[in-house]
Design a binder for these strands. Structure first.
Length: 150
DNA sequence: GCCAACGTTGGC
DNA sequence: GCCAACGTTGGC
C-alpha cells in the first residue's frame, strides 16, 4: 500500500464536501505528471487531503482510493472548464481515481509545520514553487504525518 | 526544435 | 492582489 497527497481548493472541493459525498471522482487534473501518479494508484492506497489556495494551506484529512482507472468524465464535457478537445473516447487522455472519505484530522497540519518537519527531498510538497497537485509520499514520511495529526 | 508569449498555480 | 515558477502553445 502506498501513500499519496492530493491538493484541492476548499472553495471548490474541500474535505467537508468529500465527507458529505463519502466518495468522489477526483476530476480536473490536467497535468501529465500528476495524471501518471493517479494511474499508478492502487485500490486501498491512502491519500492525504491537502487544502491549497486558502488562509492556512495544509493537510486536513485522509481518504482512500476506492476505484482505479477512472476516465475523467469532465474531459468530454463541453461545458466543463476541464473540457479537452484534444482527447477522444477511444483514447482518453485524462485518467483519475475515485476516493472515499476516511477522516478529518482533529487539527490541520499547516504547510508551515510540514516545512519545519520535512526537507524538500523527503516531501515534494515543500519543494520551492511546487505546483504538482498529486504526489507520492514515502511511507516513513506518511507515518510521521499521521503522528502529527493526532 | 527553439523560444517568446501566455495562462495557471498557489503561497504570501 | 501580487508575483515567481512552471507548463503549454504556437510562430518561425
Amino acid at each position: 500500500m502506498d501513500y499519496w497527497l492530493m491538493k484541492s481548493e476548499p472553495d471548490v472541493f474541500g474535505i467537508n464536501d468529500l465527507n458529505r459525498q463519502k466518495r468522489a471522482v477526483w476530476d480536473g487534473v490536467r497535468n501529465y505528471q500528476a495524471r501518471n501518479f493517479l494511474r499508478a494508484m492502487k485500490l486501498g492506497d491512502l491519500v492525504f487531503f491537502y487544502h491549497s489556495n486558502t488562509d492556512v494551506p495544509g493537510i486536513v484529512g485522509l481518504c482512500r482510493v476506492s476505484k482505479t482507472g477512472v476516465v475523467d468524465p469532465t474531459q468530454f464535457d463541453h461545458k466543463s472548464r476541464y473540457y479537452d478537445p484534444g482527447s477522444s473516447k477511444d483514447n482518453p487522455r485524462w485518467w483519475t481515481v475515485e476516493v472515499e472519505y476516511l477522516k478529518t484530522f482533529p487539527k490541520q497540519i499547516p504547510l508551515s509545520t510540514l516545512r519545519a518537519k520535512f526537507s524538500p527531498a523527503e516531501l515534494r510538497l515543500v519543494q520551492k514553487a511546487n505546483r504538482l497537485s498529486v504526489m507520492p509520499v514515502a511511507a516513513a514520511v506518511a507515518k510521521k504525518i499521521l503522528a502529527l495529526a493526532k
